[in-house]
Simulated scan of single mutants.
Amino acid sequence: MPKGYLIGHITVNDPDAYAEYVERDTPILAKHGGRFIVRGGQSQTCEGETLKRHVVIEFPSYAAAQDAYNDPEYQAVADIRRRTADSVIILVEGT
């Protein structure tokens, strides 16, 4: 079965408030089998425009990635991200 991925491209506008999101999202995503592959770190945009921070979370399946994103507990925490950062969140089926 193909894995699923949640990919986030983020520019944090309020680092102190965003820290709460980072702390609270991890256990919620982990309960759905999520494993952070990329979480910030050095990056280079070789083509096009992008936001500053990049996150890739691997899930056992695309359905698990969807379930994690749609989890009401995660959505409550995601409101912190929405208030403190600009972001693009993408769900992708992998190979």
Rank of each mutant, 00 (worst) to 15 (best):
K31Y: 02
Q75M: 10
H32G: 01
A78P: 00
G40Q: 11
A17S: 15
C46Y: 11
E20Y: 00
G40I: 02
E49P: 02
M1I: 10
Y74C: 03
A64H: 12
V77K: 03
G4S: 05
A30T: 09
I28T: 03
T95N: 15
T45S: 04
E49H: 12
Y18N: 12
D16S: 11
H9Q: 10
L6F: 06
P27Q: 03
G40V: 01
R39K: 14
R83Q: 14
P60R: 11
L6M: 13
K3Q: 12
V56Y: 09
Y62A: 10
I89F: 07
G8F: 03
A68F: 08
G33K: 05
Y18E: 07
E73N: 11
P15V: 09
G40T: 13
R53C: 08
A17P: 04
A63I: 08
R83T: 02
I90T: 15
V38P: 10
V12N: 05
I28H: 05
Y5G: 00
L29N: 05
N13S: 10
V22Q: 10
M1Y: 05
E47R: 14
C46G: 14
H32C: 05
I90G: 07
T11K: 04
R81F: 11
K31W: 00
R82V: 08
E73I: 15
A30E: 14
S87I: 01
E20Q: 12
K3H: 08
I37K: 02
A63C: 04
Q66F: 00
Y69H: 13
D86K: 13
